[in-house]
């Protein structure tokens, strides 16, 4: 952990949306890959290999979709965590200020 950090939490939300767009695209791509027609291949063994290939790739693309979704969620969570942390610090100081006023 470094002792300095800077954050524009709104940009984290924007970045989260960008990950979402990629996740959505990969969702469709994984589906299309899994459903790609293999019946045009010339023999049963080639069709079989193509079927295995497309199913495994659908899974692999789906895995990257899930990774992108995780980024989407984590960026949103990070943004909320920074905002919550800032709010908690603000509340602490304000509460202290109030308590100082009550003491005077």
């Amino acid at each position: 952990m470094t002792d300095r950090f800077f954050i524009d939490s709104g940009q984290l939300v924007s970045s989260s949306y960008e990950w979402r767009e990629h996740a959505d695209t990969l969702d469709g791509a994984a589906q299309r890959t899994g459903e790609a027609a293999t019946s045009g291949f010339p023999a049963a063994d080639v069709v079989g290999a193509a079927d295995t290939f497309k199913q495994r790739w659908s899974t692999m693309v789906g895995s990257l979709r899930d990774t992108s979704r995780t980024f989407e969620d984590k960026m949103l969570t990070a943004s909320q965590a920074y905002a919550a942390s800032d709010y908690a610090a603000q509340e602490a100081f304000e509460a202290w200020l109030v308590s100082m006023g009550e003491g005077s």
């Binding site: 990629h22 990969l26 791509a29 790609a36 027609a37 045009g40 291949f41 497309k54 990257l64």
Partner: peptide, 18 residues
């Protein structure tokens, strides 16, 4: 078969974007 190849290329393009 070319349609199958095109589907793979489209998915490759999506991965390249990512």
């Amino acid at each position: 078969m070319r349609a199958f190849a095109a589907d793979l290329l489209a998915t490759s393009s999506a991965l390249d974007d990512l």
